[in-house]
Structure formats: C-alpha cells, structure tokens
Write a protein that binds this DNA or RNA. Structure first.
Lengths: 208, 208
DNA sequence: GCAGACCCTAAGCGCTTGCTCACCTTCGGG
DNA sequence: CCCGAAGGTGAGCAAGCGCTTAGGGTCTGC
C-alpha cells in the first residue's frame, strides 16, 4: 500500500493517516496509555513498551511527548468536526439532521471511547499554542450544532428558548459518553446513539 | 470554635468538617491545584507552597498525596449524594422533585466547580481500595435519580422508555457541568441550574 | 558493492518527584 | 519551671522522569 492510499484511508481506518508504520504504532500505543492512565501519569517508557520499541524510538518520530498528544488531539478533533459539519450541512429537516448529528457523534464517542477520552479530557495538557489551535476547532464544532438548532427554531420545528445554552448542553451530553462508556457494558454504541438522539429531540421539540 | 461546632458546620461552610486548621488549608490548596492541573501533574511541593508551608508539613496531616485526594473525593461524594437523596425523598410530585434535584445538583457542580472537577474526574487516580468505596457512593447517587424517574413513570407524569439509560444521561449531563463551567463566563450557577432543570423535564415529560 | 539515508537501541544525563528524618519551636499541665 | 506532646522546618534520599547521544544494523540508488 502506498503512502497516498494510506492518506485516503484516514476517514475509514483509524489512524490510517499516520505514517510510517512505526509512528502509527507509537501513536496507537499512546492513545491507549493516555486513555487508561491520563497524559501526565503515562511515561514515555510505557508508550514505547506498548509499541514494542525502546524509549528512544519515540523521539525519532515525535519531538516531545506533548507533540504526540497534540497529533492525537488534532486528528480526533478533525474527525469530530467532520461528523458534525456533515450532519449540519446534510439534507433533511432540522429534526432529521439533529437526530443524525447526535446519533453519529455519540456513536463515535462510544465506539472510539479511548481516543475520545484523550481528545476531550486532556486539553489542559497541551502547550498554549497547541491548545489555541484546538480550541478554534471546538468553536466550529459548537457552531455546527448551533446552526441546526437555529434552523429548527426558524422552521418552527423546535422550541428552544436558549439556543447557546442548549447547544452547550447537547454537546456536553454527547462528549461525556467518552467518560462513562464501557465496551464490556450492556449497551452497544448504536443503542446509546439511538437513546441519546431520542432524548435530545425531546429536549428541543416544539409542543404540539 | 470547638471541634463539635466545626463538624456541624460541614454542610454550610465548605471543608468546615476538616480540622485542624493546617490540615484544612492544605486540603483547600490541594483542591485548587488538582482542579487546575490534574492530580498527577500536581506536586506535593505545589500543594504545600499554596498553603504557605514546607513540603514536609503535608505528611504530618496526610500519609500520602493519594490520601489527600481520597479525603477530597469522599467529602465531595458525600455532599453530592446528600443533595440527590434529599431531593428524591422530599415532598412534591416526581416532576417537582426532579426539578429540584437537577437544579441543586447542577448548581453545586457550577458553584464549586473546582471541587467537583476533582471529585468527578480524578477517580482513576485513587487506590483500588479507595476507588471501590467511592464507586459504592456513586451507585447510590444513581439509585436516587432512578427512583424519581420510576416514581414519575408510575404516576403517569413521565414517559421514559429506558429508565436506567435516562438516569445515566441525566447524571452525565449534570456532572459534565464541572468540566466546562467557568466562573468568568456569562452564566451564573443559578441560571445553569434553571436551564438544565428545564431541559431534563422536557426529556422525560409525558406528551399531552 | 559501497555511500549515505533511515530507523532503531543501550546507556545514561540532569532533574524532579513523593516522601523521610533529625531537629527546632510552641504551649498547656503538674 | 521543666516536660512531653504536637506541629513545624531544611536538607536530602532513592527512584523515576523526559529526553539525548553514540553507535550499529539494513535497505536503496548509482
């Protein structure tokens, strides 16, 4: 497989966009370790060990441990933004688009909860410069959801007295799935997505 | 003020139950530091420094850094459980009790968001033994909310197809306030409590 | 068939960490 | 007026941290 093919795979296969192979293995190991113990409690020796390499190998592909976190956070936020923007700009009524947005966003947070945990809960460990970059992505994430809500209000589908506040609540609800979701638990990512989409629609629906 | 008076104050004045004075100052300093940087990124020198003491002073009052976290987590979880149980067992219809529970629980997470951040997001840093103890408190927290929902369904006030799932979502929504709430932000704790109580009631309300 | 780019390792450096220890001060009771 | 308990400090230890460096394989293009 060529490098170009790997780039194209990025959307489907997790971390497909990271090459070469050794850099991807290290990044996947870092995601696991960060999700399990948190960024600060994870050592570079632990990451290298999980990837089956020596601690020094890490520094061939990444300048610092923080750069690893930034790469993970950047790719994850790009993916999250892509999901929500696609839903916001897609066809259908506001209710249909909100249903799809929540369903897909929640499913991603459940299915890839290790990644999502790092992406959503380790922002503070980023350098100032990197954090500023990521915060901008989150602003756009917020804007995508707010747009759907505004559309729904305008069309009379939704009754939402406080659009910014409700946007915040909807995103918060979805994001927190990464914290509590357990792959060994009773619910599948699909089931959680369905449950949450239903709850969110009831939160915003106009009374009949 | 006697030790007994300080105990009685616990509910009103934050950390009033911690004595002597030096131990409380250290604990308050630890809460600030843990909330700002996370448990693992906080050094014992940082905690002692914030309390205006030498690093060694910490170990007169606490056996380890982890014991400090456990004390914080325990007190915080006790308070959270107290809020929700009082709401669940209080008077009024299920809707009124749910409104009160969400309003008070959210207000606590916003007002005391430094404490809540530590309490809700640093569970993994506890020792196995301490974590087991805390998880049991969280189980009872969950049970209190579930009881209100079940009461409401039985009384015909609520329409909730999935009570355990909705309980999870309601608690998750409230807890995540601690992550994003900013004291410098536009909303007061009261306003967030009101907004969230409204959203939750719409999530569970029976259609008329 | 070998020069040079690339990838990796063993060893370890300088520093910080959680925590300890010998010692000092303050203070209420006999 | 001295005593022991309680609560504090400065100095520092062993361990572990992020990261660097010197050196050695392996593969590619000429």
């Amino acid at each position: 497989m060529s490098a170009a093919d790997e780039m194209a795979d990025g959307a489907d296969k997790p971390w497909g966009e990271v090459s070469p192979e050794a850099a991807r293995k290290l990044l996947v190991a870092a995601v696991e370790a960060f999700a399990e113990r948190g960024y600060h409690a994870t050592t570079t020796r632990d990451i290298a060990g999980r990837a089956g390499m020596s601690p020094a190998a890490l520094y061939i592909h990444y300048k610092t441990k923080e750069e690893l976190l930034h790469r993970i956070s950047r790719i994850g936020h790009d993916k999250a933004l892509e999901i929500l923007q696609a839903a916001a700009e897609g066809p259908g009524s506001a209710a249909e688009r909100l249903d799809g947005a929540v369903r897909r966003f929640v499913r991603w947070h459940a299915e890839r909860h290790t990644t999502a945990r790092v992406v959503q809960y380790e922002l503070d460990a980023l350098s100032d410069e990197h954090r500023t970059e990521i915060v901008e992505l989150r602003r756009r994430t917020d804007a995508a959801v707010r747009r759907i809500l505004n559309d729904g209000v305008k069309a009379g589908e939704f009754d939402v007295p406080d659009v910014p506040g409700t946007t915040l609540a909807v995103l918060s609800l979805c994001i927190d799935v990464a914290r509590w979701f357990n792959a060994q638990g009773r619910r599948t990512p699909d089931e959680v997505g369905e449950l949450y989409a239903g709850l969110v629609l009831r939160m915003v629906a106009a009374q009949k």
